[in-house]
């Protein structure tokens, strides 16, 4: 088996055009990616979470409506906070300050230059743990999506069926015996 890392748009194109068998880390997207025929067992759920300075927000707030009046950071050009959030930015009820990286945004949050920041949970916590940031709290989860390996729809021979079944069984055993959690913990730290 060959595993390759390329820019995401190229990875999508390689599978769509039949030059690769599976797209790693795809969300379930049957409408926009009809060329994916089978989704693997999902070993991980990606959560988009709201991080704020301690005391700024409450965990029972509705996102994004109850965050009106606050200043948020964001990774420049990314739509992670969601449409409703950007509608509030457009309306002027949320102030937006963009920075290039997750680390830059979280450091601004720690220093009080922004109030909150929306980011995928593991991406944020890897930086918080790795840099030892203080006073930054995860207030709530805004959304969650399972991630999979998406196998090409036209890869339907005997080899593919056996590989996918064996691979799914292996992933499930890794989830059951704690290996998945151990890999995540080892990578993210904390």
């Amino acid at each position: 088996m060959v595993l390759e890392a390329v820019p995401w748009s190229r990875a999508v194109k390689l599978v769509e055009t039949g030059q690769a068998h599976g797209l790693i880390g795809t969300y379930y997207r049957p409408e926009s990616r009809p060329w994916i025929g089978t989704y693997s067992t999902s070993p991980v759920t990606e959560k988009v979470s709201v991080y704020c300075r301690e005391g700024v927000a409450q965990s029972d707030w509705a996102y994004p409506a109850d965050f009106a009046g606050l200043t948020f950071g964001n990774n420049a050009g990314f739509g992670t906070p969601g449409k409703a959030f950007f509608d509030m930015v457009e309306a002027g009820t949320i102030t937006l300050q963009e920075a290039q990286t997750t680390e830059q945004n979280l450091k601004k949050l720690e220093k009080g230059r922004i109030d909150c920041y929306v980011q995928e949970q593991l991406a944020a916590e890897m930086v918080i743990n790795g840099k030892g940031l203080k006073g930054v709290v995860r207030v709530l989860d805004a959304s969650a999506e399972t991630a999979h390996i998406g196998f090409r729809a036209d890869w339907q021979d005997e080899e593919s069926q056996k590989f996918i079944a064996d691979f799914n069984a292996a992933l499930q055993s890794m989830m059951d015996d704690g290996t998945v959690a151990e890999i995540v913990s080892r990578t993210v730290g904390g």
Binding site: P7, H21, G22, L23, V44
Partner: peptide
Amino acid sequence: IKLVQDEAYAPYM
């Protein structure tokens, strides 16, 4: 069998 991933989506890929 060839699987492809993103090259810049830490910590996942």
